[in-house]
């Protein structure tokens, strides 16, 4: 008979790791399933400067190493794997992994997070890895003294544009609106940076190039004017989509696929919780993901004890 866990946590970002911490301290027999090594989206963040307790800031991977070190103190049990199917209705939940293995648990926390949105324009897929990127910390150093475009106007777009100025000679920030959505402190830095040039009210219609990115075809939404901007790289930060395809039809989601919970992280199904970026909510930060994880583990403990 296969081992039955009290709790299975799917996803090893800030939400999943914090849930593990709280579950382990509650002495729940817990396993965490992650398809890569733990860390989640924070691993691509060059510098985290809004996580309380770290006033000097620190690289994303370093913060996640601390999260992992913390759960390792509590006998971290993790499984490298990808959940492809779930049976969530009964008292015993069944998780099917790629490769055919199955895990059984009495409660499940879904903390699979989100991944970057694609633009969905011609040239994007073909030139990914050849100048089209979704990770400035990974690929920025390849664009030393070159010209790059950043697409987007939120926190990530502005932060990554600032990061890219360390390498690139010139950074165009292309945004569909006439003002940024990013936090004011990031906006102030971007406006003060002489390497960043703003292109407002503009969308990218095509990424140009054969073997590598050579430019972007852009359209001004106000005037309708179409032009070509020569660039060596295009970094795309236009929001995120939930990694929730594997719960489709099993759990209610919003129209974009984010899992709907109550404020205690409970989904519609007893014993099934969601935490972090995969959950439908307004604020997606490392600290709120960690908070979700703590709440979800606390509620899972209550559920399992029948309280």
């Amino acid at each position: 008979m296969a081992e039955i866990y009290d709790l299975a946590i799917i996803g090893g970002g800030p939400a999943g790791l914090t849930a593990y911490l709280y579950a382990a301290r509650a002495r729940l027999n817990t396993i965490l399933i992650e398809k890569l090594s733990p860390g989640g989206q924070v691993l691509v963040t060059d510098f985290v400067e809004n996580y309380p307790g770290f006033p000097e800031g620190l690289p994303g991977w370093e913060l996640m190493e601390k999260f992992v070190a913390h759960v390792k103190k509590l006998g971290f049990k993790q499984k490298l794997g990808e959940v492809t199917g779930l049976e969530l209705n009964g008292e015993l939940k069944r998780l099917k992994l790629a490769g055919g293995e199955e895990l059984l648990a009495r409660a499940v926390i879904i903390a699979t997070g989100a991944s970057p949105n694609k633009l969905g324009v011609p040239g994007e897929k073909e030139l990914t890895g050849k100048g089209v990127s979704y990770c400035a910390t990974c690929d920025g150093p390849f664009f030393r003294d070159q010209t790059v475009a950043v697409v987007g106007g939120g926190n990530t777009a502005v932060q990554e544009a600032l990061f890219l100025t360390r390498f690139a000679e010139k950074v165009f920030l292309i945004h569909r609106r006439d003002q940024l959505r990013a936090q004011k402190i990031l906006q102030e830095r971007a406006f003060a940076n002489p390497k960043i040039h703003f292109i407002w009210n503009t969308v990218v219609e095509e990424i140009l190039g054969q073997e590598k990115v050579e430019g972007v075809r852009i359209k001004n939404r106000k005037t309708g004017e179409i032009s070509t901007l020569p660039v060596d790289g295009v970094f795309i930060f236009i929001g995120i989509r939930p990694q929730s395809d594997f719960v489709k039809g099993l759990l209610p989601t919003d129209e974009r696929g984010f899992i709907i919970t109550d404020c205690e992280m409970r989904t519609e199904l007893p014993g099934v919780f969601a935490a972090g970026d995969v959950r439908a909510k307004a604020c997606r930060q490392i600290i709120t993901a960690a908070g979700d994880g703590a709440t979800a583990a606390y509620m899972a403990e209550h559920y399992l004890s029948g309280a």
């Binding site: 398809k35 890569l36 490298l80 794997g81 990808e82 790629a98 490769g99 990914t128 890895g129 050849k130 100048g131 990127s133 979704y134 990770c135 990974c138 690929d139 390849f142 664009f143 073997e211 590598k212 790289g233």
Partner: peptide
């Protein structure tokens, strides 16, 4: 090999690159 992103995985067979994966992807 024109690498402008990492991680990039390139598969070689008989001295030739035959396939390529860009970015961190699942084991499967």
């Amino acid at each position: 090999f024109g690498i402008r992103a990492i991680p990039t995985l390139i598969f070689f067979k008989n001295g030739q690159p035959v396939d390529q994966i860009t970015g961190a992807v699942a084991k499967s």
